[in-house]
């Protein structure tokens, strides 16, 4: 059986998309000969030429802005932001234009744009290299926001995102870039907008995404030894949110803990808890708890594991809701 890192799977998704659709372009800082600082675009420029795979100046607003013009000219841009913390200059173009353009033109234009952003922490990175920016995008109408948790689904989600007619913010969990997964790369499987049950269980559902899926699976393993069986729901897509699978999980387990790296206040956990109340309040056996990053700037390497949800914090939250 084949084995892939997430970097290799993303690279394959880009390669396959470019081979399939000659209108697909890949660009960003250092994505050419170097293949990006994480090598996600490695070899693409040699294979597809420097017109379709090109370096840009260090200009994040410019990178996002040219996506708009290129889309109007009939191209499908797949742009790379070098790091989460350096993507903020592009926010104005993303929020004011990429997200709104179709609406502003009464549906006469569309923005089939993918903006890939290496995101989240856990890599002992310098400051500005461990940000969780998902809420900024999830709160912006007009965008879709997806986060893969492993190599095989990263291939699927990126392929689907590039084929999607709406703009997609594609957040790549850096700490999972080099983790290997065995299997075959395939687009078939869960579509965009669908969550994925990664582990079945009856006592509690852990709702999570990105690198925290692995951590929740570890926590579920620990809890299983205590005869507490946890369902692990990998959201994959933050916009749209798979409300059906979320409600189904509540109906099935009656208890939910949401886990994410981002700070707690107004993080995805707040939205998920509120949606659960709206969709499945009658099935709740305990309050929804959140295990998240803290409301402080992302910490330096020496402290990051004290900031990120740990197996201990997750299991402790599950024990609380189960004994409620």
């Amino acid at each position: 059986m084949a084995e892939y890192t997430m970097v290799a799977a993303l690279n394959a998704a880009l390669r396959d998309a470019m081979a399939k659709d000659p209108r697909t372009l890949v660009f960003g800082e250092d994505v050419g000969e170097l293949g990006g600082v994480y090598r996600v675009t490695e070899g693409l420029q040699r294979e597809f030429g420097s017109e379709r795979v090109f370096n840009t100046p260090i200009a994040e607003a410019g990178i996002a802005g040219i996506c708009v013009g290129l889309s109007l000219a009939g191209w499908r841009p797949v742009a790379e932001m070098q790091f989460d913390g350096f993507s903020y200059p592009a926010l104005d173009q993303i929020v004011s234009h990429i997200a709104k353009y179709r609406n502003r033109t009464r549906g006469r234009t569309s923005m089939p744009i993918v903006i890939r952003i290496p995101s989240f922490g856990g890599i002992r990175g310098k400051e500005h290299h461990g940000e969780s920016p998902e809420t900024y995008y999830a709160h912006t109408a007009g965008l879709k926001v997806v986060v893969p948790s492993g190599a095989l689904d990263a291939y699927r989600l990126l392929s689907l995102a590039i084929a999607d007619p709406d703009p997609v913010i594609f957040l790549e969990p850096k700490s999972r870039y080099w983790a290997k997964e065995q299997g075959e790369l395939a687009v078939d499987g869960p579509r965009m907008g669908r969550a994925w049950v990664r582990r079945e269980g009856e006592a509690c559902t852990l709702v999570t995404y990105g690198a925290m899926v692995t951590r929740c699976l570890e926590a579920a393993e620990v809890l299983a030894r205590e005869r507490v069986s946890c369902r692990v729901l990998d959201l994959r897509s933050l916009v749209p949110l798979d409300l059906d699978t979320l409600a189904e999980s509540v109906r099935k387990t009656g208890r939910v803990v949401v886990v994410h790296e981002a700070p707690r206040t107004l993080g995805m956990g707040a939205e998920i808890a509120a949606r659960i109340m709206e969709e499945a309040f009658d099935y709740l056996e305990a309050p929804v708890l959140r295990v998240t990053g803290y409301d402080v700037p992302y910490p330096p390497a020496a402290l990051e594991q004290r900031y990120l949800p740990s197996v201990e914090r997750i299991t402790s939250a599950v024990r609380r809701v189960v004994s409620y």
Partner: peptide
């Protein structure tokens, strides 16, 4: 912001 769009369109 529109100046960047014009450049992107011209690149395309």
């Amino acid at each position: 912001t529109q100046i960047v769009h014009a450049v992107g369109w011209a690149m395309g």
